[in-house]
Amino acid sequence: MSNFFNYYASTILYLLNLVAWYILSRKTDRKSVNGIVLNYFLVFFMIFLCWNILMMVTSRSNIVYILFWSLVSIYELFFVLITLFRLARAKKDYSDIFVIIVAILAIPIILAAILTWTNRSYSPINTTDFYNLILLTLGSILILRSLLLQESFLDNIESFFIFSGFTLYFGLHILASNALSIDFMKNFNFGKYANLISLIFWLGSVFLVWKIRSKHS
């Protein structure tokens, strides 16, 4: 049952989300912050779609999992950071700093992946994931705050829903990967549904965004 939800159902939801958000993103200005966020978000779905398909094809291969976990973790950091940088609208070009930050944050992820592979234990991944997710959650909250303070809030509604979903997604994953706190995963298997909950949220968001857009356009 849980496998079904984790792979098949989530694959379908990823596909639906990809199509729905792609349709939604067609009317958006690609060069705006909102357009960039939508583009990266679609790439995020595509990565996950590949991951899920490969997991199903390779019968949950460890190496596939570790590789994609690393890729997704780095991509999520990149995504949140680039959005924060864009929203900061700094006049100076901070691309060097951005690359350095992403590179520094990627080091523990790569190390955790290597350790997990060599030690045959998911503990390094879970631990790194936990701290990463805290950073990503905080980053998402900062993005939401920044979006709310923007004068052009109406132009960035899609981004707002996307990062609301990400806050939920990262928050739920903290619970799923948290070995230090309430151990929610072990007792209730709640963490397993983090992806599904977020995907349903994003799918629902499509309808709400469409509704708001049709009212305010």
Binding site: L148, I157, F160, F161, S164, L168, I197, I200, F201, G204, S205, L208, I212
Partner: peptide
């Protein structure tokens, strides 16, 4: 949880 959060976000947006 999904609908509650979605509704909350929607309300915030509105």
């Amino acid at each position: 949880l999904i609908f509650f959060i979605l509704f909350t976000v929607y309300l915030i947006v509105k």
